[in-house]
Design a protein around this nucleic acid. Sequence first.
DNA 1: CAGTGGTCTAGACCACGGG
DNA 2: CCGTGGTCTAGACCACTGT
Lengths: 217, 217
Amino acid sequence: MTKSSKVTAYSQVKEMIKESILSGEIPAGARITIAEITERYGVSQMPVREAFQILQGEGFIELLPHKGASVKSLTPEYLRNIYEIRGVIEGLLARRSMPNLTLSGLNRLKEINGQMEAMIQSGIRADEIVQLDREFHTAIYASSNNPEALQIYEKYVGLISSLRKKFGYGDNRVDNIVSQHWKIIEALQNQDAEALEKVIHLHSEGAKLDLLALMSS
Amino acid sequence: MTKSSKVTAYSQVKEMIKESILSGEIPAGARITIAEITERYGVSQMPVREAFQILQGEGFIELLPHKGASVKSLTPEYLRNIYEIRGVIEGLLARRSMPNLTLSGLNRLKEINGQMEAMIQSGIRADEIVQLDREFHTAIYASSNNPEALQIYEKYVGLISSLRKKFGYGDNRVDNIVSQHWKIIEALQNQDAEALEKVIHLHSEGAKLDLLALMSS
DNA sequence: CAGTGGTCTAGACCACGGG
DNA sequence: CCGTGGTCTAGACCACTGT
């Protein structure tokens, strides 16, 4: 490690490996050896092993006893599965957040979605859309008072965001996102739980289909 | 460790600690030191630390850098949160399992629920009810084809089961369980996704209220 | 029946909290 | 400012794979 510091080596190693995976530097399905990492970052085995265990818990790698670590491969089935999970978790988060959402929170949502709308005119950049979309949803779910659910959401959203940056968006997906966001805002304003949950599921389903189509083409 | 074997030390240590937590031997909120475990099981620090990381990933303990491990305390808020998560995940699992459920699978469900019904007559034993209830739900969700969701479900069901064995069930909770199970079977038989999801949520909600009431009394 | 690489031990290091 | 206990290093051990 660069210098002695207060943060632990294993958490730094964990973050660095995570970065490498999300950026695509270490491709899905690739094997990672302990030796590789110890050499690269100048640490010994133990912090690497701890980092591996954490990353396995977070769903980024797979760890087989006596066989080593490999980056979880993002098969269509796996993606479909985690989209489904994310969908129902988002429904829960939205439902729980609705009563706690403040007026200024609602304005923040309108602002973010306005920015997205503006971006469509001036040419779409996938990574910025990803960023704004995440902010939009995070702004809603922050008031859910269910940190455990939020953690599951963030785990999967991180995995999927990296793919978005790589594959971008389908033809009119971004338009759909923006219009669905307006509907979400409307449902929140009306405190209409049923409508809200319906739009959220639609939103998630659309995202899944769009990404899967892009990946298979 | 007892003897050299093919399974890893850290996985054995992990299982043993997990047992101790679920059995209540190590109470919620208690601190666990590495030295304690190394001494008790005759291993060195590294496998213990790996076990800790895994247990943190599974939600059983909390790990603070430079401060150590403590068993996650089961506050009412935390329980409410994980019941909510379990509820929506179960809804998802049930919905996805329905089309894949075989006739013999359905008969198995009827059989299990019949056993539960019989048990009510001959006096209720909490740990056996817990066991049968778990079997019932597992029998449904096995055909969900979504192992990731199943994993989340099992993580939380393990935590909650241990509490059930400790606190038992409220007055007519067991009757409710059995009658709701029949309704679940009926919905599965009719391939009625909407009814199914409704019962599942009712089931989950009832379980949550019952347990929270028992714990606060 | 080697070589590779994951797993484990022993002990040093050092952050943190109480006196 | 010392003690406790979490963190890290170096190196040995041994399960697994392919030759």
